[in-house]
Simulated assay, not measured.
Amino acid sequence: MHNRQKKVIFSAGGVFSFACVLIVATAMGTRFWVKATVLCTTGAQLVNATGPELDKFIGSVNYGLFQGQRLKQCGLGGRPFSFSFFPDLVDVIPVSLHGSVLFFCAVLILFSSLCSAFFMYNAFGSPYETLHGPLGLYMWNMSSSVCSCLILILYVSEVKLHRLSESIANYKEGHFVYKTYTEKFEYSFWLVFLVFLTHCLNILLIRLAGVQFPFWEAKESEANTGAADLMY
């Protein structure tokens, strides 16, 4: 492949990686990771509400990594309340799991930045082998993909296994009990999945530029050495 085509491909990879940095940073600051509706079971049982009457007892919760908002309804109208995870919900959420999600988000921003820098360096600079060359491009993009997967897996575990929406809805509630009615992941969560797909696309772009996978090169060199040994 011509050098000009390689420059175009590597430049596109650099732009995509820098876009990943902006996407993750933006997603971390929003509160649109999860949206759930919660049912006030205490109020619904008191009046034996069924069918359309349940709408008066269904509130909502939406939150991200740092903050969120909940709307409580127990038959007397909605009560909006804004909250932050730190320090408000430290005693309610699984802090170690939530901290791991934040840590890997920061690592993903760092690795995506390195991907962007190395793509541009390979496009317009004079890279040498190992970390600054093709091996570095593969390594940082694969590391970013792994970080993206870890963020998604850990966050799903936090929300589903630890019933995060219910814990938030029942925060500082002494008389009413809330249960999750519906729950879905919002667009900020899926932006991280988009980042994962983008880094996978970057790996394909590196291969399209004519750079072999590192482990394929090792296998090919071993095969060639074996053939040479047989000849002599």
Rank of each mutant, 00 (worst) to 15 (best):
M120A: 08
L164C: 07
Q45E: 15
Y187R: 03
K184Q: 12
C147M: 14
L164H: 13
D229C: 09
S113D: 01
S96W: 03
K56W: 04
K72N: 06
Q67Y: 03
V156S: 13
T180L: 05
L110I: 12
S145Y: 11
L76H: 14
A19Q: 09
S112D: 11
Q45D: 14
T41V: 10
G43S: 08
F81W: 09
P52G: 00
G13P: 12
M120S: 07
L46H: 14
V21M: 12
T130F: 05
V211F: 15
A12C: 05
A117L: 11
N224D: 08
P127Q: 03
H98N: 04
T198M: 14
E220Q: 14
M120D: 01
H2V: 01
V38M: 13
L54W: 12
F118N: 10
Y187I: 03
E183N: 08
H162Y: 15
M231R: 09
W190Q: 02
V34E: 07
T42P: 02
F85G: 00
G210I: 01
G29R: 00
V47S: 00
G125Q: 07
I206P: 12
P87H: 08
F124M: 02
G226D: 04
T42R: 09
Y128N: 04
L102H: 14
F196E: 06
V61T: 00
Y63W: 06
T42D: 07
C74Y: 12
F215I: 07
K35I: 04
S126W: 04
E186T: 06
F104N: 06
V159W: 11
N170D: 11
L108Y: 04
W33P: 03
H2M: 14
S188D: 03
F118E: 02
M28G: 05
V211N: 14
L161Y: 12
Y155H: 05
P134E: 09
F85D: 04
R70I: 09
Y181V: 01
H162K: 12
V195F: 02
R70Y: 05
P80M: 07
G99T: 03
N224R: 11
A123N: 13
F32K: 05
S143M: 11
L205D: 02
Y232T: 03
S17T: 08
R207T: 14
G210K: 10
L22C: 15
F83M: 07
S145D: 00
V34A: 09
H132P: 00
L161T: 07
E217C: 09
Q212V: 04
R207E: 15
K35M: 10
F85L: 14
M142C: 09
R4H: 15
K219S: 06
K160V: 13
D88P: 02
A49Q: 12
C147L: 13
S126I: 07
G43F: 02
C74S: 14
G68L: 06
L39M: 07
A106E: 01
S17V: 02
